[in-house]
Amino acid sequence: MSQVITDKHGIQHYMITINVNGDDYTRVVKANTLLVNVLRDELDLTGTKKGCELGDCGSCTILLENKPVDSCMILAIEADGKEITTIEGIAESSELDKVQEAFINNGAIQCGYCTPGMIISAKALLTRNPHPNEKEVREAIAGNLCRCTGFVNIVKAVLKVSEETNDKEVISNE
């Protein structure tokens, strides 16, 4: 159990350590602190957006233990000890990830507000299934609402990554 500190108002605070984009961060949170708020407010990782706060829009999508989840629906304390990837950590170096490149080159970005969550969902799909069909792409991003693009160029961008991924690369990455 994480260390508990009780403040002078009797409210309990919990010390948690989360690994975000490869680095460990230790923070003190209240029980009611949501993971999305720790990422945005404590770690300044504001690429993770708040859109609906009820798990409907997917703007706050992150990878938790490599699975896409809505970070607005998860208590920070529940993520104690876990690995998290946010949009800021999706590329391994200063080079863009292929999914990011494809989004830019295929017109998949308009206002950009859904983009981080959308890219995380797409990345999770392509990691699991490097050559999805169109339906699988649409299923993977169905929990990410975009009001600008009608998803047309987003789907196109994800399929483009698949097209340009050769299978040798996939195997060597695994």
Binding site: G55, D70, S121, G143
Partner: peptide, 9 residues
């Protein structure tokens, strides 16, 4: 059910 993100939670 719901969405992929919610199905993971």
């Amino acid at each position: 059910m719901a969405s992929n993100q919610i199905r993971n939670i």
